[in-house]
Design a protein around this nucleic acid. Structure first.
Lengths: 213, 213, 213, 213
DNA sequence: CCATAATCGAGACGGTACGTCGCGTCTTCGG
DNA sequence: CCGAAGACGCGACGTACCGTCTCGATTATGG
């Protein structure tokens, strides 16, 4: 979780005292709590360490920067994303929209997501971490929704895989981007009416896009 | 510009030495330069002041935080946005998409925009400043494009003004959101093909949305 | 008072608006008040100006530094020093001791005297101002006391004027120095017993010194 | 030395990295050097830190104000004070006078002593620090001189201990006060003639005072 | 009766230093 | 080797005063 580099628990193990797994959890918990309380810019490594009842050293041994720590702390929220089958493409799309919105309205996510994205414009490693921990988890829903719609016959199967990827990327950027923009830039809620309108726009556009290779 | 709080042209001018207009310009210039060089997180108030040949106090007298300063410094970039009439709704939409993208690929904008949005999740005054200085300037293009399309007869005139506003907001969130997400989150360029695809999706969806009040 | 450089009121007077005499008094008053409240190190020029209801410019036009201002503000306290004839050398000496002490126990004086002396170790102009405004006023009492004692026949007249000056200087340094040291360094009060003891010591020593030219 | 608050030699030493003793010495050295170069009022904490090759925080961790730092830095000068037995009371007294004077003519001392005394009029903790670090070291010489004179039979032993203390305090205030006043207020040197005159006055007065309980 | 000129208040200006905060590293001790 | 504790060098923060400089508005004298 923290870096994917833990030695396996079995098989000898390296010498010396092993790292405390409790510490990891305590730190990530503390990070989320502090994010809600303080927001991104007031959050400090020292404060997180203190809340977690852990020394700063322990923290830096696992995460080298605030950004990486926050990405990992927030990532778990995106594990909750799931796409229950609602029976129709329209219902599924609307479900995705609302799940994205629900997640982004949680203060931990709202406060930190834009901030780490901003940081990542100058830090490729961070960008990779964000993609792996967050973006791909979101994208999975879009892909899953398309798969179902195709199984239902609501959408044709795209024979060209690269075109298929292009379309999925576009849909994803539109859904995620529109929701984020609505919430954080326009500063207005994602209410049912707006979710429905966005869905309608997407469904209307989907066919058109599909037809123009 | 700096605060919108000048005493106004009438009256007799308030007592004391007036603020230096040169300083304002020098500071905003210095801010943009420093943003390009250092990025948001390495940018410091003291550095900006030094570059502008100005005392730190002069800077704090006008802007109370880095965020506000950067918003004002970046705002002028968004004044350049214009919508030349390209003859058709499709061409105009694509033009808007590419202008947004071109702006967001400038390092001053890319680095700072997400950061100030992140800050604004905890600061309503900042949110307002962003809206006034940046968002409204972008939205204007969308409104102007619709107006032209209606004049050309490509789009029907929406009789209900609140529905009209809702639709315009949606279109704006989709365009701006998708472009931002593509560039900063997905980390891929807004090339002509993608711009065309997004435009196709929007045009396909526009009619659908319009029909469902 | 402020600089001794005013052109005489009569005989033309220079052009332009004359300086406000009220301002001078208000400033010196404000200085004393602020000294009592804040002490030397917390006293600021801006604060004095504000208390006096005067612009900083007005203040700097008259005094170039905090030290000079404070010397002038405190000087008037030393004008009150007087030596009523108490009928005997012993009584007069004790009177001088107690007057010095009474003055130095006033907070304006206590706080500022040592401070300006400290400043004067690096500033000859200030040293001169202190001597003229404060030290000479104190010394006058010692000279006057000796004069009376000589008139009474309690002390012989010293024929050599330079020896006379030397002795007076010594006595003065001893009285003033001992009182200051007692109050500010040792931090103990100049009570009647101590004043009597010092006087006794001085009277005992006076004859001895006088005899060794 | 730095604050007298070390945990003591017993126990086990408190947790965490211990404070650097080198830093303490470097800071006090730097303070003395800077005092000579700049004087009290131009001395800044930042400058001292830089000279000592130390961070400002390290400095503030040990001393909370310029005054306290300077007291500790100057205190070591007063450790050098010693009273070699010169064979007679007169010679010993004159020795004390000249040692005080020699010390006060060193620029570190001259510049700072009055300043910290001035500060101490508003700060009891500082006053205590001054007394412990400086005044008591001086006073020791006076007590030692009296002891020797009594051993030699030049002075009677005072049976009443409180009267003995009172007399010693008086002598000390007179010597130290007179020397300080001569040097810093009157601004004249403590030359041999003046030292002899002061000594004569003291010796003449000593007997008198002793006789009046 | 106006021109000249120094004053006044106000407050912005370029600076310097402040004392604090957070960073990320290091040094200690104990487990 | 880990972990807590905490000192360390560093760099930025935002504030306080400094002493100077415009401003417009007074208030004198002198032509």
């Amino acid at each position: 979780m923290s870096g994917g580099s833990r030695a396996g628990t079995s098989g000898g193990g390296r010498p010396g005292r092993p790292r405390s797994a409790e510490a990891d959890l305590a730190i990530l918990d503390a990070t989320r709590t502090a994010l809600v309380e303080l927001g991104w810019s007031k959050l400090t490594m020292g404060d997180v360490a203190a809340r977690a009842g852990v020394a700063k050293t322990t923290l830096y041994r696992r995460w080298t920067s605030k950004s990486e720590l926050v990405v990992d702390a927030v990532a778990v929220l995106f594990d909750e994303l799931e796409l229950p089958d609602r029976g129709s493409l329209r219902a599924d799309v609307e479900g995705v929209v609302r799940q994205f919105a629900a997640l982004l309205e949680r203060p931990e996510a709202k406060t930190s997501l834009m901030a780490v994205v901003a940081e990542s414009t100058r830090d490729d490693a961070l960008r990779g971490r964000i993609r792996a921990a967050i973006v791909e988890r979101q994208k999975r829903l879009v892909l899953q929704g398309r798969e179902r719609a195709q199984a239902r016959g609501e959408l044709p199967r795209e024979p060209d895989p690269s075109a298929a990827a292009r379309h999925a990327d576009l849909i994803f950027d539109v859904i995620a981007g529109a929701v984020v923009h609505r919430l954080l830039v326009s500063g207005r809620p994602v209410d049912p009416a707006w979710a429905r309108d966005l869905t309608t726009l997407l469904l209307g556009g989907l066919t058109t896009v599909g037809q123009t290779p």
